[in-house]
């Protein structure tokens, strides 16, 4: 598993390196470069930030400072299942923050982070357009309305069971061959 991660990281950095060549070495290009990386790879890794700093001749912490200032940049790769919790006005009033906290506690990560196994990532969003169902969470492409702490448990458990079943199915298939 770690090995595939390493090669993945390497491929990512190689891609960024080739894209960086198109940008002139000016400070003004910092945000466009970060946006380019985010668009292609959906997150900014520490080594990517370091690479940008080197390209522009600024210190790594300056790049980090700028990147962390803006909400649009992520620092963790998106999980296999993306959990988005709505904290728009209606959801906020109906306890959306409690739902967010439940997800955070259940998965042991904070918003905008990804679990170590890259199964789940949590994001907060502002209104998804179905306020009547508040509080709302969107997992992958499914909207879950009238969320409650007990539902959080159930949803995560559902994914875990599904994963185990898949695993068992795979083992079963292998033993057959």
């Amino acid at each position: 598993m770690d090995h595939t991660r390493e090669t993945e990281e390497e491929a990512l950095l190689n891609d960024i390196a080739s894209m960086l060549a198109a940008f002139e070495k000016e400070r003004a290009n910092l945000i466009p470069i970060l946006q380019m990386i985010q668009e292609r790879h959906h997150y900014l890794s520490a080594s990517a930030l370091q690479m940008v700093a080197k390209h522009l001749g600024v210190s790594g912490c300056e790049v980090y400072g700028v990147a962390t200032f803006y909400n649009q940049f992520r620092f963790y790769p998106p999980g296999k299942h993306r959990i988005r919790v709505c904290l728009g006005t209606a959801c906020h009033l109906r306890g959306g923050d409690i739902i967010l906290e439940n997800f955070e506690r259940k998965l042991g990560i904070k918003e905008a982070e990804t679990t170590a196994d890259r199964e789940f990532s949590i994001d907060r969003v502002a209104c998804v357009g179905c306020c009547a169902l508040a509080p709302v969470a969107i997992i992958d492409d499914t909207v879950h309305g009238h969320m409650a702490p007990s539902k959080v448990e159930g949803l995560i458990l559902g994914f875990e069971i599904e994963k185990q079943r898949e695993k068992r199915g795979k083992q079963h298939g292998e033993s057959k061959q």
Partner: peptide
Amino acid sequence: QAMLSFARRGLDTVISFFGEGDKA
């Protein structure tokens, strides 16, 4: 070149030392 900088925003703002690999 500053080896520390402000990071994040609002109440979460901190001084960060990001950049282990920096030669400086």
